[in-house]
Simulated assay, not measured.
Amino acid sequence: MEQIKVDYIDIGEDVSTVILEKNKEDLMNVKAGARILVDSDHFAFVYILEDTEHFYSLRFEQDCWLALLEAHQKEMAFFAEVSENTRLALVDFNEELAFLLDNIQGNGNYGEAFEKAVGAVFY
């Protein structure tokens, strides 16, 4: 699975645009996987993208969590900018993140350090 780091989140009036560390022309034919996982060892939320042959992970690391929280609280739609002129809707992003945040709180299965880091920003 190719990992793609989120550089920052541009919060607009109605939508949030996820800016990738670099534009990925090979993502032009991907679709949203409609699920978020966690990488509790490296403190990241991971949104899954897929095409017919590969999976890709968009990594929302700690440096963008405050913007992630702001956009999530405003219930904004999330889009990933995959090229200069192309954005991909991150389907079910808010629902998936809300589910994970509910599940992480007080749950030692994610590791105490990750739980505390998430709590410091999101609760």
Rank of each mutant, 00 (worst) to 15 (best):
I104Y: 10
L97K: 14
E95M: 12
E70M: 11
V121F: 06
Q62K: 15
D92N: 14
H54S: 11
E112C: 03
A117G: 05
E70L: 13
N94I: 02
E115S: 11
V91H: 08
F114V: 13
L88C: 01
A120N: 10
L58G: 03
C64H: 00
L69T: 02
K74Q: 14
G108C: 02
E53R: 12
A120G: 03
I104E: 07
V121R: 08
A120R: 05
M76I: 08
E53F: 09
A67V: 00
Y56P: 01
G111L: 12
Y110P: 04
A67Y: 00
S83M: 05
F60S: 07
F78E: 04
L97T: 15
A80Y: 02
G108W: 00
R87N: 09
E115M: 11
K116F: 01
A120D: 12
F99W: 02
R87W: 05
Q73W: 01
H72N: 15
E96H: 10
F79L: 13
F79V: 05
A113M: 02
E75H: 14
V121L: 05
E81H: 02
T86G: 00
L97I: 15
N94T: 06
Q73T: 13
Y110K: 07
W65G: 12
N107C: 14
E95Q: 14
T52E: 13
Q105R: 12
G106Q: 07
E81Q: 15
L90S: 08
Y56W: 03
N103E: 15
N109S: 14
L68W: 12
A77V: 02
A77H: 00
A120F: 04
L88S: 01
N94S: 04
A80M: 03
F99A: 03
D63A: 06
L69N: 08
T52K: 14
A71S: 15
R59P: 00
V118N: 07
L66Q: 14
A77F: 00
Q73R: 15
T52C: 01
F93G: 07
V121A: 06
G119N: 13
Y110A: 09
A98I: 00
E96V: 04
L97M: 15
M76T: 11
D102W: 04
L69W: 04
F99S: 01
F93T: 07
E115F: 02
T86W: 00
E115L: 04
F55D: 03
K116S: 08
K74T: 03
H54Q: 10
F93P: 04
A67N: 05
K74N: 09
D92V: 01
S83V: 08
A89G: 00
L90K: 04
F55I: 04
Q73I: 11
I104K: 11
E81I: 02
H72L: 15
E84P: 06
V118P: 05
A71W: 08
H54C: 06
L100C: 06
E75K: 15
R87C: 05
L100P: 03
G106A: 06
D63M: 03
E96W: 02
N94V: 05
